[in-house]
Design a protein around this nucleic acid. Structure first.
Length: 499
RNA sequence: GCCCCCAUCGUCUAGGGGACUAGGACGUGGGCCUUUCAAGCCCAAAACAGGGGUUCGAAUCCCCUUGGGGGCACCA
């Protein structure tokens, strides 16, 4: 048996997206893992907005994040949209807090004012690149006496605040999924902590916020692994205790070659897929399936169980079973999970979720009829949006079968017309059309006509549903109703006779 | 170029020295069931990247190579 997470003490975790792009699979998974751990341990889940980059800020993505998470079934206890005891939860509103801590770092000799211009830095980088050196700040302002630099800053000289990275030694950081990472300090840079606009950069903001908000576990993508040692240094400089760090690996594109680029994403959407959470509903995916799917990309329970509801996940999730290697996205697996969860839905629930798809396809939906159709559809759907093409004929006044499809297997048009006519006569005698009442007479008819059941039922299927592939024939006929079935049969005979 | 991470079937993974002729799932092929399509059930093909160690014994531990991924901004 796999035991649930080690720390059964209530955790405080956060999902901290930046409002610069849409909520995608990777972000959703990070949010999910946070949420699962919080709910499992009875802790708190916080939604914080990392919006310190005012240039790339896209206001509309804030709503997308909230909507996407809600759609997945994830909720939170404190957040930028609802406040809480550790607010504000929007980093752009915490400017002064970061500044205060940045100055604390300057006072303790762990940071310094830097007056170098972006242009000079750019030139420097270029030169280092050409000489194939490490790209680092050259330390020009590092040793300006503090009184002097403080005076310059106070006088209004444009400046940033940099971390004063030790020039020797090394640092050890520990991620829950990996071995200890030991980094030589010389490979680390004097990173900027506060920009010249006075707003903190991620590195400072994240450390200060996580500490102030009493975060116990930090889940973030593995793209943060390279700046992880810097964060370790900042914690050390403050003398703060570090949270448990968890860096799940990035998602790779379906081919497994690199992570999704803008171009890949656009291509995917042309192919009717998406990595964006708020697109998934329209594509006919169930939030339950998406959750199940992303949970299993980088995490597993044991060597058998793969079907998980949110409650299952809350109960069984554990950090120890997280896998550090990158995973390629597989949409065929998503389809599979979606089918599984569709079949797991109660009928009236599925009916409710199906309705908008029929409406979007232009059908006027009769609720009662839809309720009858749902059971026939349930085992046949991979995605909800397939429903109209599979069962739209139920809502049509008339169907338009293709003449060539109306002809039975290995039969002529004349033979088919005759067979259809005979079916019509048989059914006309029946007052009630239900699977129980029509199956036997029709099988007998097939015998009498020396036809395979498949031949006869094939003609009938196309005549009645207008398509070669459909929901089960007898059940479908019962739903369509006697009058309409007879009418469509007559139409089929007419079509066949003109051939 | 420099730094870091990772490495089991095509894909997601189980595995943490002997229970491995390496298990499951998706996908693929075949079969059963069958009024079509599904669903369900059964079967099959399919992997420990390579090379060195350590050990009585290595998919599991160590090293190297290779491959893949991430990062090197007054972005996050």
């Amino acid at each position: 048996m796999t035991s649930p997470t080690q720390s059964l003490k209530p955790v405080r975790v956060r999902f901290a997206p930046s409002p610069t792009g849409r909520l995608h699979l990777g972000g959703a998974r990070t949010a999910l893992y946070n949420y699962l751990l919080a709910r499992q341990t009875g802790g708190q889940f916080i939604l914080r907005l990392e919006d310190t980059d005012r240039k790339r800020y896209q206001p509309e993505t804030e709503k997308e994040i909230v909507d996407g998470l809600h759609w997945l079934g994830i909720d939170w206890d404190e957040g930028f949209d609802r406040g809480g005891p550790f607010g504000p939860y929007r980093q752009s509103e915490r400017k002064d807090i970061y500044l205060e801590y940045a100055h604390q770092l300057i006072d303790s000799g762990h940071a310094y004012f830097c007056f170098c211009s972006p242009e000079r830095l750019q030139t420097l980088r270029q030169a280092q690149l050409e000489k194939k050196q490490q790209i680092h700040y050259d330390g020009t302002c590092r040793d300006i006496p503090l009184e002097k630099s403080r005076a310059r800053a106070a006088a209004g000289e444009r400046h940033v605040i940099r971390f004063k990275m030790p020039r020797e030694g090394s640092i050890k950081v520990k991620d829950a999924l990996r071995e200890e990472i030991i980094i030589d300090n010389r490979t680390l840079d004097d990173s900027i902590l506060v920009k010249s606009d006075g707003l903190a950069l991620y590195h400072l903001a994240v450390v200060v916020d996580d500490h102030l908000m009493k975060i116990t576990h930090v889940f973030r993508g593995s793209e943060w692994l390279s700046t992880f040692p810097l964060h370790g240094h900042i914690y050390q400089a403050f003398g703060w205790e570090q949270p448990v760090w968890v860096h799940p690996s990035v998602f790779l594109k379906p081919s497994g070659k690199g992570k999704m680029s803008k171009r890949d994403t656009a291509q995917l959407m042309k192919d009717g897929q998406s990595i964006f959470i708020t697109d998934m509903a329209d594509l006919g995916y169930l939030p339950e399936a998406v959750v199940n799917w992303i949970a299993l990309m980088g995490w597993s329970y044991d060597d058998q169980m793969e079907f998980f509801t949110m409650n299952d996940l809350i109960e069984k999730f554990s950090i120890e079973k997280l896998n550090p290697s990158p995973a390629a996205i597989s949409f065929s697996k998503l389809d599979h999970f979606n089918g599984l969860h569709i079949r797991n839905l109660a009928l009236d629930d599925l009916t409710k979720r199906l309705k908008p798809f029929f409406q979007k396809a232009g059908y006027t939906v009769d609720d009662e009829r839809l309720q009858e159709i749902t059971p026939l559809l349930q085992i046949r759907l991979k995605t909800l949006d397939e429903a109209p093409e599979k069962a739209g004929f139920f809502f049509k006044e008339e169907v338009k079968p293709r003449p060539d499809e109306l002809i039975g297997e290995k039969m002529t048009a004349v033979e088919s017309a005759m067979a259809a006519q005979r079916v019509f006569e048989v059914l006309k005698e029946l007052l009630d059309i239900s699977p129980q009442t029509i199956e036997e007479p029709l099988r007998n008819l097939a015998d009498e006509l020396h036809l395979q059941t498949g031949q006869l039922f094939g003609i009938l299927r196309v005549a009645v549903t207008g398509q070669k592939v459909s929901t089960p024939l007898f059940e479908s006929m019962a739903i369509i109703g006697r009058t309409n079935v007879l009418k469509r049969l007559q139409q089929a005979v007419q079509i066949l006779e003109t051939l």
